[in-house]
């Protein structure tokens, strides 16, 4: 039976947390743990998920879980895995899984992540990407997109938001030629669940980069979470892709796959307009966003499709 939103278990492992209504990150943690099951051991760095999930005595994880230093998600995962292995104590169905935000992954945690991939430690690293440091109040990270206003890139007379484009974390990770990596979105839940399942069943370091919108930080109503997430993909501003490393695909350098390659994209303007963070963007900004998107897709289509 294929895993999808209908067939997935009703058992909750991330429950009773304090995340905001319509939190994309909380949905990632909740759904991924359903796929990984109660023997998963989770590690979460500083960020919204640890801040809302681990408030003694309101501890929200039904499986084993712990907080890590902000930069240490991958490092602590590696240690957990090594500790279990050294004791011969790792059940067959135990996934050692990390959930870290975009800042915790692409900025401060990147070195530890690279180290873990280099060792090919048997861990699953999940980055829930809400495109800013949300827990500290919506500051820019290297995964904040161009034109998005944050509290450290406020829209002003001089600039309309972030002047840098989103760094390609997926490319950086895949350059390590790890066994498996994928991008996903909570807006395409079945694809997301399948990728968590695929990652679960592969040994070595696996990485998922999951787009997880934040109603508070992006400025849209909570009830629009899923449609905003879906629209990010439909506009081509996010993409669904997979990478199988040489050991899994048998292909030198590994094999990329675009899981969704639409002939036409949904218009960007509508997607931007429904989010307050882009409200200062003008026609030139929209053009810059579009150009960057098209260049990215040209590269992906020519190499991955």
């Amino acid at each position: 039976m294929p895993l999808n939103a209908r067939t997935i278990t009703d058992e909750e492992l991330f429950y009773g947390h304090k995340a905001c209504p319509g939190c994309g990150g909380a949905l990632v943690v909740r759904q991924a743990l359903k796929v990984l099951g109660p023997h998963a051991i989770a590690a979460l760095p500083a960020g919204c998920m640890s801040a809302t999930g681990f408030n003694f005595p309101q501890l929200a994880f039904g499986n084993n879980a712990m907080i890590t230093p902000f930069a240490s998600t991958a490092a602590v995962l590696s240690g957990i895995e090594a500790g279990l292995r050294a004791q011969g104590a790792k059940p067959e169905d135990c996934t050692v899984v990390g959930f870290a935000g975009d800042g915790g992954t692409a900025d401060i945690g990147l070195q530890a992540l690279s180290g873990a991939i280099d060792r090919n430690d048997d861990i699953l690293y999940i980055c829930y990407d809400n495109e800013a440091y949300m827990n500290t109040g919506i500051q820019r990270s290297s995964l904040t997109p161009y034109g998005a206003s944050t509290t450290t890139t406020p829209a002003s007379k001089r600039e309309h938001g972030s002047i840098t484009h989103k760094k390609s974390l997926f490319d950086i990770v895949c350059a390590h030629e790890l066994p498996y990596a994928a991008t996903a979105s909570i807006g395409y839940m079945n694809d997301l669940l399948r990728k968590v399942e695929t990652a679960r069943n592969i040994a070595g370091t696996r990485f998922l980069h999951i787009m997880a919108p934040c109603p508070v930080g992006w400025g849209f109503p909570s009830k629009d979470l899923m449609s905003v997430a879906k629209e990010a993909v439909d506009t081509g501003l996010w993409y669904l892709a997979e990478y199988e490393g040489p050991t899994v695909s048998g292909v030198p350098g590994g094999r990329f796959k675009l899981n969704r390659n639409p002939r036409a994209f949904a218009p960007i303007a509508g997607y931007l307009q429904r989010q307050k963070r882009f409200s200062a963007d003008d026609a030139a900004d929209i053009e810059a966003i579009e150009r960057a998107r098209d260049e990215r897709w040209e590269m992906m289509r020519s190499r991955w499709a």
Binding site: A43, M66, T68, P69, A71, S72, A74, A75, V76, L77, S78, G79, I80, E81, A82, G83, L84, A86, Q87, A89, Q111, A112, S114, G115, D118
Partner: peptide, 16 residues
């Protein structure tokens, strides 16, 4: 790949 990771990994291992 660093001391920060050395001690973080030890923490993870000790937690098991």
């Amino acid at each position: 790949e660093s001391e920060h990771t050395a001690l973080s990994a030890a923490i993870g291992a000790s937690a098991t």
